[in-house]
Design a protein around this nucleic acid. Structure first.
Lengths: 305, 305
DNA sequence: TCCGTGCATTAGCGATACTGATGGGCATGG
DNA sequence: CCATGCCCATCAGTATCGCTAATGCACGGA
C-alpha cells in the first residue's frame, strides 16, 4: 500500500526547506535517509516528485503537495482526538482565535466564564488556517473563526472530521477608508462598486480578497498590497495611509484609529464568527460554548465524514 | 510517529468483520499478523481500541473509526490523483451518479457528447457516498451528486481535497404521495407541515431525512421505514403502498407510477445536482462538463485545503 | 468434561530503515 | 581551465521490524 506518513512528512519537509540536507536535520534524520525517503516515494508512485538542483516540486510533486499536508494534519488530528479521551479534567481553557473573531462578545463571554468558576485562560490569536490546526491537534480546546457569508449560511470550512461547528454570532460588515476619503462620508457602500479600487489583501485579519471575489461573484478585488500576520492595528495603519481598502466587521472597524468604517449594503452579507469544538470538549470549553451560543447563536451544522 | 496506514486498514477491517481471523483472510494476512497490528496500534495510542470476544470497538476505537476510513480514502485519493497525471488519453468516460442526479438533462448531455465524438460511456448509479469515493479514487472520471439546498447554495460536501465542484442544475422539489392521498390534490405543500407524517428514509435515492431536518431547521421527519439501495422505482412502489412519504426532484417524481408529486412550496429549497470532477479531467470528461454546465450552470466553488 | 473456535504469544527469518562513508554532478571562483 | 565546495545519490553494514507458522490459552457449547 505504501504512502507511509513518514515518507510524506519528509517529502513535505524537503519542499518546505528546498533542501534535502536541511529537511534531514529538521527531522532528525541523516541526509541519506531523506534521499532514500524521496526515492522510495518516487518509486512507489512511479513518478519523479522532486526536481533536484535546485530542489523544487515537479508537477506531480505539486499535486502531491495538495494532499500531503492535509493528510498529515488529519493523522495528527486523529491522534489528538484519542489522546483527549484520556486527559485529566482541567480548569485551563485554551482558545484559538482569528483576529477579527476576538471582539467584545467573546471578551464578555470569557468574563462571565471566569466569574462563574476559577479557570485559567489562554487566548491565542493566530491565522485562520492555524485556528483549525490548533483545534484539530488539541493544542487549543476551542477555536473561534470569522469570515463572511450570506446571512445564516455557514462558513465554508475544509475537512474538519468529527469536529463540530456552531454559530457564535453574525454582524454587519464594513469597508475601512482613510479618514477624509470621499467615500467615507457615505452611509453605506456597495462592494461591487469597489471591485476595481485599491485593496489591501490581509488574509488573516480582514476578509481575504479571494473570498470577496467568490462571495460577490465579481471579478476585481485584485491585491496590490499584501499584509501578513494577525495584527489588525497594523492593517488600520496601512489603510489610514491610503494603501488600500479592506473589509472588516463593522463594530471592530468603527473603533480603529485613522480610518472610517462604512457599512456594506450590497451584496447582503454578514460577518460571521463560528465556534469550532472537538467531539468531546473539556468542561471549561463546554461552559464557554454555552455562554457564547445560548443567547442568539444556535447549532448550525455538524461536520462528519 | 506511528499510525501506519496498514495498521489503520486492518483496524477498520477487524471492526467491519467483527473478527480478527476474517479480517486477516480478507486482507491476505495471517491471523497472527492482524493480532499484532491491533496490538501495535493500541500500544502506539496507549489505549485499548478493540474489545475481544465479542470483537467490537471500545469508545476510543469508535472515535478512531470516525477518522480512519476518511484517512484511508484520502490516501487512496492522493495516489489516484497522481496516477491520473500519467494515464494515456482515453475515449472512455465513466460517470458515477447518485440515482436522482441521473435525469433527462444528463441523458441529453451524454447524447450530445456521443454525437460529437466517439466515446464509450459507462454510467454507474451508486449511493451518494460512493459517488464521491469513485471520483476521488479515479474509478470514475466524473461524478454527479444530487441533494437539497437553499437556492444557489452549494451542497454541503465533505473533504474533497483538490477536487472541484460545479453547479450542474437546480430544480424544484416535490413530495410523493400515494395516488388518491388527500394531500395529493394540493398545488403545493409546506414541508414543515409534514414533519410529523410517516416518512420513508431512503438516504441514497431520495433526500435523506436528516438532511430534511437540518435544512428545515425543524424536528420530526422521523423514519419508521428504511429503504436502502439505489432503486427509485422501488421507493415509488413503497410510497404508492402508503408506507410513507419521500422528497424527490419534481420532474423525476412526476413520472413515477402510483404516486402523485406535489411541489414543495416552503421552505424555499431547490433540488440541486452538482458535478464533481478531479483536478485534471480526461478529455471526454472535460467535454461533458462543458455540455452540462455551459447553459445555466456556472462555476460555484472550489474546494482546496 | 471435552472439544471447537478464535485471539494471543513466540520463534525465526527475510525485508526494512536507518547511519556513516563514499561517489558524482554542478555551480562558483581563481 | 581546473580547483573547490556544496549537495544529492549510492552503497555497505547493522539493528529493527513485520511477516509466517506453530503453539498456547481462554471461553462457550454439547
Amino acid at each position: 500500500m505504501g504512502m507511509d506518513p513518514h515518507l510524506l512528512r519528509t517529502f513535505v519537509a524537503v519542499l518546505d526547506h528546498r533542501s534535502f540536507s536541511l529537511a534531514a536535520s529538521a527531522l532528525g534524520y541523516t541526509q541519506s535517509a531523506v534521499s532514500q525517503h524521496i526515492a522510495a516515494l518516487e518509486a512507489d508512485l512511479g513518478t519523479r516528485l522532486v526536481e533536484r538542483r535546485p530542489v523544487a516540486a515537479t508537477p506531480a510533486g505539486a499535486r502531491l503537495m495538495e494532499h500531503a499536508p492535509a493528510l498529515l494534519l488529519r493523522l495528527e488530528a486523529a491522534r489528538a482526538d484519542l489522546a483527549r479521551l484520556h486527559r485529566a479534567p482541567s480548569d485551563r481553557l485554551t482558545l484559538a482565535c482569528s483576529p477579527a473573531a476576538l471582539g467584545a462578545p467573546v471578551a464578555r463571554a470569557l468574563a462571565r466564564l471566569r466569574a462563574s468558576a476559577r479557570v485559567d485562560v489562554e487566548v491565542r490569536v493566530v491565522g485562520r488556517e492555524a485556528v483549525i490546526e490548533e483545534v484539530l491537534t488539541a493544542r487549543a480546546d476551542l477555536g473561534l473563526l470569522d469570515g463572511v457569508a450570506a446571512p445564516s449560511d455557514p462558513l465554508p470550512l475544509p475537512d474538519l472530521g468529527p469536529t463540530v461547528t456552531l454559530a457564535a454570532s453574525e454582524g454587519p460588515l464594513a469597508v475601512i477608508f482613510p479618514d477624509g476619503h470621499p467615500l467615507a462620508e457615505r452611509d453605506a457602500v456597495r462592494l461591487t462598486d469597489l471591485a476595481q479600487a485599491q485593496w489591501i489583501d490581509s488574509p488573516d485579519t480582514a476578509v481575504p480578497l479571494d473570498r470577496l471575489r467568490a462571495v460577490c461573484g465579481a471579478d476585481g478585488f485584485r491585491p496590490r498590497f499584501r499584509h501578513l500576520g494577525t495584527d489588525i492595528h497594523g492593517l488600520a495603519a496601512l489603510a489610514a495611509a491610503d494603501h488600500g481598502l479592506a473589509v472588516l466587521p463593522l463594530p471592530l472597524a468603527a473603533a480603529l484609529p485613522g480610518v472610517t468604517a462604512v457599512p456594506v449594503r450590497h451584496p447582503r452579507l454578514v460577518h460571521r464568527t463560528e465556534l469550532l469544538h472537538p467531539a468531546d470538549p473539556s468542561t471549561p470549553a463546554r461552559r464557554l460554548t454555552g455562554l457564547l451560543t445560548h443567547r442568539d447563536g444556535s447549532r448550525v451544522h455538524e461536520d462528519a465524514d
